[in-house]
Design a binder for these strands. Structure first.
Lengths: 206, 206
DNA sequence: CGTTAATCTAGAACAAGTTTCACACTTGTT
DNA sequence: AACAAGTGTGAAACTTGTTCTAGATTAACG
């Protein structure tokens, strides 16, 4: 349990910030070729110019490292989306467009996608905080697309289901069990939940 | 690539069938305590009374083994469901009831669930056929609950999305990021897709 | 039976994630 | 400047999945 894990820990000197960034970059680069298994901790350490022990001080496991890479990529995606938001009408359309755009981006780097998504779904309780950060980021990206200020419980639940579908569809695509077209249709299908007419329980909770 | 992998390979003698069964049982038992990481191949081999090399001849990796365990459990679940099918009215309700029942069963063996689900989502292209078998079984269980003879493309797509949600929700529950109640609501929410009227084409997304 | 191929066993060896240790380097404090 | 605490380094060790090898056992077949 190192201190750096949380965002609120000791503020990291400049050199440390640089090291962290070099490590993330090395990880992403190795992941970009070869995927999950090509990210070998010894190689990451060497490529980043740090000792193995140092790598483990910054990221206590390979999973932590790759989840952090994913967080990084998601933040980047979010900026891109802020600059060029989806313009379709209807929340469902905009969410679908957003995820399909993200999917297309991942198709350009399938190995990187493999490493990140496999790490995320393999993460166990020890990586909860970091995996949760990724989940929150994803949620925010979807809520941004919905242009929703104050989501209800039901809406949050729908967003969760969309996220589930997103992650699991990526997994099946990456493992060659589902085609790109199928993933796209899955995404469109699950986005249909957004427009689902109110069911009885909704009134009670609003 | 051993021959036994496919179901159509050489028919396995009685002793071999018994060995295979001992291995699966040993795997399930170790998984039942300790989860994924407690399933150590040396221990599985010892508990099953076979040499390590033999274990690897029957199951070419730990992932293969655990996916096979999952297949076994799913077949068992299916028999149970055949004997006592869900009786709610409405396909959506019956599917939800089925999955909630399965979820409750998994809650009784969370470690086993952990091992199986983690193995399934971690499976890469090399385990495609086996993972696909699990997927087909799950699909059939859901279709059984829907009491559907001849599913349309759209219905199959909805079933896929339900499966995605099911797997990913289990993952988040197992890693402590989502509560039992949330998983239950996710399942009920995604089952809402079943009753959704077939929607008009929309492919002008970019 | 005897032979031959396949299978099984025991155990060593290898690979990659993780831990540990002894030592050097920074950094903040007085 | 001196020192204490924390941080980084390099290398070795440890763990567990996986592979390999040499010999014993089994099964199939003449």
């Amino acid at each position: 349990m190192t201190a750096q894990a949380g965002a609120t820990a000791s503020p990291l000197t400049e050199r440390q910030e640089a090291r962290r960034r070099r490590i993330l970059q090395a990880g992403a680069q190795l992941a970009g070729r070869g995927g999950f298994e090509a990210v070998q901790m010894r190689e990451v350490a060497e490529a980043a110019g740090v000792a193995l022990g140092t790598l483990y001080r910054y990221f206590p496991s390979k999973i932590h490292l790759l989840v952090a890479v994913m967080q990084d990529q998601l933040q980047r995606l979010r900026l891109t989306l802020r600059r060029r938001p989806p313009r379709a009408d209807g929340a469902a359309q905009r969410v679908a467009e957003t995820l399909l755009r993200a999917f297309r981006a991942l198709q350009r780097e399938p190995h990187l996608a493999d490493a990140m998504v496999r790490a995320l779904t393999f993460a166990d309780r020890g990586v909860s905080p970091e995996a949760d950060a990724v989940s929150r980021l994803t949620t925010e990206i979807i809520l941004d697309a919905m242009e929703l200020e104050d989501p209800t419980q039901e809406q949050l639940c729908v967003v969760r289901v969309i996220e589930h579908t997103w992650h699991s569809a990526l997994i099946t695509w990456l493992s060659g069990r589902e085609s790109i077209a199928q993933v796209e249709r899955d995404i469109e299908t699950v986005c249909g939940l957004i427009d689902l007419p109110a069911d009885p329980r909704r009134d009670a909770l609003m």
